[in-house]
């Protein structure tokens, strides 16, 4: 008969056996079960709440995306397209809204660089939207935590109405009504904030023609 293993080795082997047992239960069976349930009952949500335009997947209603003019030189800075509602500034990836690089600027509240950036954004947006700098809301000049925020405040959405309407040659009232349709209230009336989903709003705009 083989010699029994030393107690210290036996102890570690017990640990390894427990680890392997629960790796199978909690690490394989459990996530596969949840994935199965997701695919069966909530396939839309489980697969990322994708949205379609003319039958083609054009994004996720949960992830913001860029609405910039097409660039000929890929190294040139991206320029916002006036025909679309613009999302918040984003720190995800070089051009923003890159889900392979989610994250925030992580700049501190007193950072001089961030202060200058905020002021520059305020002026640029005021010029772009043809409004007074003081009426640009905080969410328009700050980056989100994920860099993928799909939402803007109703104030920022309404502020963009005139510009979008003019560049699309649409009646201002039509665009304003579209925004009003897309203002989501707080969940249950008190959770979170009022918001406008930019992806959903621009999708509705695209369907308008």
């Amino acid at each position: 008969m083989a010699k029994p293993l030393p107690p210290l080795v036996r102890l570690h082997l017990t640990g390894l056996r427990l680890l392997l047992v629960f790796t199978v239960i909690c690490g394989i069976a459990y996530p596969l079960l949840i994935t199965g349930i997701g695919e069966l009952i909530f396939p839309g949500q489980a697969n990322g709440s994708q949205v379609r335009l003319n039958g083609r997947v054009v994004g996720s209603s949960l992830l913001g995306q860029n609405f910039t003019l097409r660039r000929i030189d890929p190294k040139a800075p991206s320029v916002p397209d006036p025909r679309w509602f613009q999302p918040r500034p984003s720190a995800a990836g070089a051009d923003g809204y890159d889900p392979t690089a989610s994250g925030a600027s992580n700049l501190g509240p007193n950072d001089t660089g961030l202060t200058k950036t905020v002021q520059a954004r305020r002026l640029a947006i005021a010029l772009f939207d043809g409004v007074r700098p003081s009426s640009v809301p905080p969410d328009a000049v700050t980056g989100s935590g994920s860099g993928l925020d799909p939402d803007i405040s109703p104030a920022y959405a309404y502020e963009q109405v005139n510009r979008v309407a003019h560049s699309r040659r649409l009646p201002v009232a039509t665009v304003r009504a579209l925004v009003a349709d897309h203002v989501d209230g707080r969940v249950l009336g008190f959770l979170g904030q009022q918001r406008v989903n930019v992806v959903a709003l621009n999708l509705a705009l695209a369907r308008l023609g």
């Binding site: 925030a104 700049l107 809301p137 905080p138 969410d139 989100s144 935590g145 994920s146 405040s153 904030q193």
Partner: peptide, 9 residues
């Protein structure tokens, strides 16, 4: 407003 690094929703 303290919205740097925070989500609108």
């Amino acid at each position: 407003g303290a919205m740097e690094g925070k989500e609108v929703r």
